[in-house]
């Protein structure tokens, strides 16, 4: 009984984690022994940790935990229900490891250990969202940072000491906008214009081809091949049946020809029974066409 319960609780916890996008948070940078790279509201230079939201949505990390002890994942909780604990898309937050969490929402009750590991833990107190090892030999004045090779995919797989860069995306600080790149690569705009015109024409040309085809199908100019019905005779088979009938009855040649034509039409879909407006060769008991009483006036009009 315990295992399904555990499984369910783990599942629910992970669902909760995903539901709030907490899994999109990473510890992107940390700096023990901060000389002056960051100054807090009290004018001090505490150790600091940078949390980065890799997603395109806002994530509320209030209630999550930060710890430097694997055995004590709930060592320091970030204040719950604090609006300032909402992290916008691709935004960073700086938390101060000042050793006193009473100083404010962003203050932790421990300082950063060189040679230790930092853990960011979900608000369930069990699920580790991310971790960062701080090397024991971290040079003075340097921070330990995670870098993304591809800022589009946001895969932070490169961790090494670097110059501190609090409150900014690590690595490529001067990310050029697409417009800036376009200004460099296509200053006169001809390339973009030619590509864009080609794409607009292609999109509408594809639509034209599709609707031209569908129009032809709907108006009957192009007929889709119908699948032969199982068990129904094909054209040559119809001719063979007619020949057999001719031999059997040894009657006039017109009769098998008529039978062959009728069978051929039937096989090719030339005989219509359902569509209105077509004359059918099949009898229809519900039709009143043969009822003379409906076709002739009982009394002639007198002028």
């Amino acid at each position: 009984m315990k295992k399904p319960g555990l499984f369910l609780s783990a599942l629910l916890a992970s669902l909760g984690l995903w539901g709030q996008n907490l899994s999109d948070l990473i510890i992107s940078e940390a700096m023990p022994g901060n000389p002056s790279s960051v100054t807090d509201d009290y004018g001090n230079h505490p150790d600091w940790i940078e949390i980065f939201n890799t997603s395109q949505g806002t994530v509320n990390f209030g209630g999550c935990f930060l710890t430097d002890e694997r055995s004590n994942l709930t060592k320091c909780q970030i204040t719950k229900d604090d609006r300032s604990a909402r992290l916008g898309p691709r935004q960073v937050a700086i938390l101060y490891a000042a050793g006193n969490s009473a100083l404010g929402t962003y203050y932790l009750n421990f300082t950063l250990p060189c040679g230790g590991t930092l853990y960011l833990v979900s608000n369930d107190g069990r699920t580790i969202i991310d971790s960062l090892c701080i090397p024991a030999s971290l040079p003075e004045g340097m921070s330990i940072s995670k870098f993304a090779h591809d800022n589009k995919e946001m895969v932070f797989d490169d961790i090494h000491p670097s110059s501190p860069s609090p409150r900014s995306l690590n690595g490529r600080h001067e990310q050029k906008t697409r417009a800036q790149k376009m200004k460099e690569t296509d200053p006169n705009g001809w390339t973009l214009s030619v590509i864009a015109v080609a794409v607009v024409f292609s999109a509408l040309l594809i639509l034209f081809l599709i609707y031209n085809l569908s129009g032809n199908i709907f108006t009957g100019r192009v007929r889709l091949k119908r699948k032969a019905r199982r068990g129904s005779p094909e054209g040559p088979e119809a001719a063979a049946i007619a020949l057999a009938l001719s031999d059997y009855t040894s009657c006039d040649e017109d009769i098998p020809a008529a039978i062959a034509l009728a069978l051929h039409l039937y096989c090719e879909g030339g005989v219509h029974d359902t569509e209105p407006g077509f004359i059918t060769i099949k009898s229809n008991s519900s039709s009143a066409w043969g009822n003379k009483s409906l076709n002739f006036r009982k009394q002639t009009h007198k002028i």
């Binding site: 607009v200 024409f201 509408l204 040309l205 034209f208 609707y211 129009g215």
Partner: peptide, 13 residues
């Protein structure tokens, strides 16, 4: 538009 899809190309031009 559906009845005369060829005229779509004018919209592109």
């Amino acid at each position: 538009l559906i009845s005369q899809p060829r005229l779509m190309l004018i919209g592109a031009a």
